[in-house]
């Protein structure tokens, strides 16, 4: 198996070093607690929180001072971005050189919501949403940080059937898993990354399901190695949920024939 090596010199900042809470309002605001104790950065390295929103090209950057003296900015308004789709990145940057170099990073940080009503982090790894898909019944929308299974909004009840009807999920979900894991492997994500990005979450999911908990291959490995690993995961998924049995059990009822 090919080992991946981090040549960049930057460190992953574990998620517990930063906590962000969004307060809904007009506009929404946020509070952030950043604690870099135990992570060795030069005291003068700059600390930034960057706010992005899925689907938007806007980046709002908040200056939190330096690693040795973290000071939140006064203006922490989430203007021009949808708080429900917001995610943050924490960057520690060495700006003593000509080109700012990233010393440490925590990406895709989902905020908590102070009113407790919404918490994007509690979503499963495969949200199912309705979309205009023409004559397609389903597809997968690979976003930058999230993905979702989209089902045709013009088929009444399909979004619900996708969750409970084996005639849908027993056929579709194995194909979804194949497609998503193949794409995830090609991103070269690592299962032990401190990230909530979909490739990381899905590769962890695959590793847990794999009968021998084998770490997923990298994107550089041969197609056959990738395919073997993915097929083992799909097979384990089908077995765990007895998809063929569930499909058969439901089939007669759908045909109007009592079993």
């Amino acid at each position: 198996m090919i080992k991946r090596v981090n040549f960049t010199g930057r460190r992953r900042i574990a998620r517990h070093h930063v906590r962000i809470e969004v307060h809904n309002g007009r506009p929404a605001t946020f509070n952030a607690t950043i604690d870099l104790d135990g992570v060795q950065f030069p005291a003068g390295a700059k600390v930034y929180l960057e706010l992005m929103s899925a689907g938007s090209s806007l980046v709002k950057r908040f200056d939190f001072g330096a690693a040795g003296a973290i000071v939140p900015p006064e203006d922490r308004r989430l203007t021009n971005l949808d708080p429900d789709r917001a995610f943050f990145a924490l960057k520690v940057v060495d700006q003593s050189k000509r080109f700012g170099q990233i010393l440490g990073i925590a990406e895709n940080i989902r905020p908590d919501f102070a009113d407790g009503e919404k918490d994007a982090a509690t979503q499963g790894i495969l949200p199912i949403v309705e979309a205009e898909l023409g004559q397609q019944l389903w597809d997968i929308d690979f976003g930058e940080h999230n993905l979702c299974l989209r089902v045709n909004a013009n088929v009444p009840g399909l979004v619900d059937r996708a969750r409970w009807d084996p005639l849908f999920y027993a056929v579709v979900f194995p194909a979804v898993i194949r497609q998503v894991l193949d794409r995830a492997i090609r991103t070269n994500a690592e299962v032990d990354e401190a990230s909530d990005k979909w490739p990381v979450l899905w590769l962890r999911f695959g590793k847990q399901l794999h009968p021998e908990q084998v770490t997923p291959p990298s994107g550089q490995e041969a197609d056959e190695d990738r395919d073997d690993w993915i097929e083992a995961v799909v097979d384990a998924f089908c077995a765990k949920h007895a998809l063929k049995d569930a499909f058969l059990k439901h089939l007669p009822r759908e045909n109007g024939v009592e079993s």
Binding site: R10, Y48, Q95
Partner: peptide, 13 residues
Amino acid sequence: EMTYDLQSLNADQ
């Protein structure tokens, strides 16, 4: 973007 803080660069850089 793995190494550099692209948010702070100008076009020349």
